[in-house]
Design a protein around this nucleic acid. Structure first.
Lengths: 217, 217
DNA sequence: GAAGCATTGTGAAATGTACCACAAAATCTT
DNA sequence: AAGATTTTGTGGTACATTTCACAATGCTTC
């Protein structure tokens, strides 16, 4: 039986980790958590790779950037590896998240149950439509976007999701940044301009579909 | 004034185009269409790159994979380049899309206005919840997932979006593939297994947030 | 407890991607 | 109409990422 390693330490403080490696860690984590729910205790880079469609060598190389988490001949202890990845990604805590834009997408995000146990929790939602301000969305009262900077600053929020129309997205982004937000998940179909030290990820279903359409005869 | 090039032909039939290049074309297109709405006629790789946060050299190299679309000293004619990219991505037509799962996400997708003019159109939506089947979502009657394969096959649909719970996503995917679907945009938080010749893109807000959390102190 | 099997972590090689820098070509200026 | 300016397309180079392949290690079996 695999023992929990003791004294394992995360590296990465010195080393420069490629962003592409960082981007795969959440996928590893998601699959490992699924395996844990299936009560699997141990896995190998080969098995994990098959579930993910990623080569075993790549998984081993990626994980070795952060420490030695496996055991030769045996593989990786799943609960242990889950904890290590949660530490690496700084999601061994819960980040409060603000949603800006209470349209279909914003409301779906506020009501989404999938953030639980994955490191995030929606705590407030904003909109600038007078008909929507004050209404309830998943236990939250929609706040006026006019008060966004103060509310986010006071709450110390660092993570936000933007689901406003494209023509308001840059302005909202600028306000979020002035309020101290460092990570933005942008659903508006537009490239945002942000200063050094602020990270943006984009979700645009049309972009994803267009990419695949290239391969359709 | 820039003349429209005549007799320009798309290459790429022989050449193997890197997927990473294909993935940037929709971003170029989205920004070019925004510029067109601002009634800008001509742009340069430098200007486009600044808007996108991508180097000018990379944009030129990417586009040169498909043909010579620019003019030295002048740049790129925007309407012309838009049409070329639409051809390359096979979105110089409208692809019918099926939505499976009529929860918050599926309903938001069915009602989303952002697919218009970007090559896609939602034409049907499915769910397996008896309370939801038969209700209206954005002019569509929610159909029973039991009839999914037949309906999609009959309509000749090649593109689908999956917004069902994770534990149903693989089963739905298998049905979509048996119905002839070749491109799947998956909102379920799970890696899908698909055969050669079927493409999947993933949208999982928690994954995107986790990736950024790595960079949060 | 020795032999066989499984699996890691990792240098080295192979492959893939981005950037540089410039000749060529088109436009602009005077 | 000649020189200055702009900007493309691209060969070459530098950098990044993935894959290979194997020594080392830890289980399992007999």
């Amino acid at each position: 039986m695999l023992q929990l390693q003791k004294g394992v330490q995360l590296l990465m403080d010195n080393k420069q980790i490629p962003d592409i490696v960082v981007g795969r860690l959440p996928l590893y984590l998601r699959t490992l958590q699924k395996m844990a729910r299936e009560t699997i205790q141990v896995t190998s880079s080969l098995e994990l790779g098959e579930r993910l469609g990623i080569s075993a060598a790549q998984i081993r190389k990626d994980l070795s950037q952060f420490g030695e988490f496996g055991k030769q001949g045996t593989g990786y202890n799943i609960p242990f590896l889950i904890e290590r990845i949660r530490e690496i990604l700084h999601i061994d805590r819960v980040w409060d998240v603000a949603v800006v834009g209470a349209g279909d997408v914003g409301r779906a995000l506020a009501r989404y149950q999938g953030f639980a146990d994955r490191g995030f929790r929606v705590v407030m939602i904003f909109d600038n439509n007078p008909d929507v301000i004050g209404t309830l969305v998943a236990d939250f009262t929609v706040q006026n976007t006019a008060g966004l900077v103060e509310a986010i600053q006071n709450a110390g929020i660092k993570v936000a999701m933007v689901s406003v129309p494209a023509d308001q997205a840059q302005s909202v982004t600028d306000q979020l940044i002035s309020a101290g937000v460092k990570a933005i998940l942008n659903y508006a179909p537009i490239s945002l301009s942000v200063p050094e030290g602020v990270w943006v990820q984009y979700i645009d279903p049309a972009v994803h579909l267009q990419r695949m359409a290239f391969y359709l005869a």
